[in-house]
Computed example of a mutant assay.
Amino acid sequence: MADYADITYAVAERIATVTLNRPEARNGYTIRMADELGDAMDRADRDEEVRVVVLTGAGRDFSVGADLSQGGFDFDPESGPDAAWQEPAGRCSKRIFTMHKPVIAALRGAAVGGGITITLSCDYRLAAEDARFGFVFTRRGIYPEGASAWFLPRLVGMGTALDWMISGRLVDAAEALSAGLVHRLYPADTVLEEAYALAREIIATTAPVSVAVTRQLLYRMASAPSPFPVHELDSRLIGGLGKSSDAVEGVVSFLQKRPPEFTMRVDRDLPDYLPWLHDSI
């Protein structure tokens, strides 16, 4: 998709900015937006000039969740979905889950329903001090989506996830920070610039291949039944460092007290034995 209708996409300073762009509808989430977000994340992940993605929303809100006024779900309500259909919030959250690049969500105003579940697989959620969050599904007679029942307990613990999802109540920024849903709070007019500052720090100081492997190690191996398979994989990774130019550069630049210049690329230098490279998603 070269042109988007419900989002915008721009790259500068090796940062891809993906913006939900329906401010007149408070960035209500649509089927088209889901498809466009998937395409934009694919685009950023394939582009070796992009090191970090910043996900944000135009206007005063990040997103108030599903906008069913735009036609509802993309299946016939009489016959239901076919076997291949996937709900639209999960289309985005799963694609972010599989990214090789870090994704930073910059949240202000309301982030409710699908407007928060699509961000749960982001690496960082930075929020405005007046932001509000809600997993409001039970108050609408519907069900949690975006694979949020998997992501949310891993972020805030099962007890808090049960409270927020069963009650469907709104959560203010201070509670979200205390529970671990968001990483840091900022004044509303600075949260996006703080996301860019974090992105620039990651770009300047970290190796892209190391970041890609580390991000997926945490997600894919955290639910292993014991530490043994994790140690088997990281032993193989550490054992291969003798052939890693980035590992040499990381040590030398540290000793020389200068910024590193990492040259390995995600599109050609990921270890081919990483188990998730062969997964179907």
Rank of each mutant, 00 (worst) to 15 (best):
S235A: 11
S235H: 08
A195H: 08
A224H: 13
P227D: 06
G242M: 12
D269T: 03
M264A: 12
T206N: 09
T190R: 13
V209H: 01
Q256A: 14
P187R: 09
V252N: 00
V251P: 01
E194M: 08
A176T: 09
A222M: 13
I238M: 14
P208G: 06
R268S: 02
A247L: 08
L177C: 07
A224C: 13
Q256R: 15
S223Y: 12
S226C: 02
A207S: 15
P227G: 02
L192I: 12
L217D: 02
G240L: 02
L198K: 06
R268E: 00
D234W: 14
A199P: 00
L217P: 03
T205P: 04
V211M: 07
P259V: 08
S253Q: 02
V209S: 01
S244F: 05
M264C: 01
E194A: 13
S223F: 11
L270E: 02
A222W: 13
G240S: 01
D269Y: 00
E175W: 06
D246E: 06
P227W: 09
A222P: 00
L241V: 05
Q216E: 10
P208V: 04
A204T: 11
I203K: 03
R220K: 14
L177Y: 05
G239F: 03
A247C: 07
L218W: 11
L217Q: 02
L181S: 03
L192W: 10
R268T: 05
V266K: 00
E232K: 11
E194Q: 14
V266Q: 00
D272A: 14
E201V: 11
R265K: 15
A195E: 09
A188V: 06
V182N: 02
D267H: 11
S223T: 14
L185H: 08
V191F: 03
A224G: 07
D189T: 07
L255M: 05
P271R: 08
V211L: 06
V213N: 00
P271E: 06
P229D: 07
G239P: 02
A176G: 09
I238H: 10
A199T: 10
H231N: 12
R200I: 04
T214F: 09
A224D: 14
T214K: 09
P271G: 08
S210M: 12
S178M: 11
V213P: 04
L270Q: 03
S226L: 07
A176R: 07
L185K: 10
R184F: 07
T206P: 01
V230D: 04
P271T: 10
A224N: 13
D269F: 02
V248P: 01
A247E: 04
V266F: 03
M264P: 00
Q216L: 09
L192N: 05
P229M: 04
A204N: 12
P225W: 13
L177V: 06
I203H: 05
I238K: 14
L198T: 04
P229W: 06
V251R: 02
Y186N: 00
G240C: 01
A207V: 04
F254M: 14
A179K: 06
E232Q: 11
V213E: 00
S178Y: 11
E194Y: 00
E194P: 01
S210H: 11
K257Q: 13
S244N: 08
E194F: 01
E232H: 12
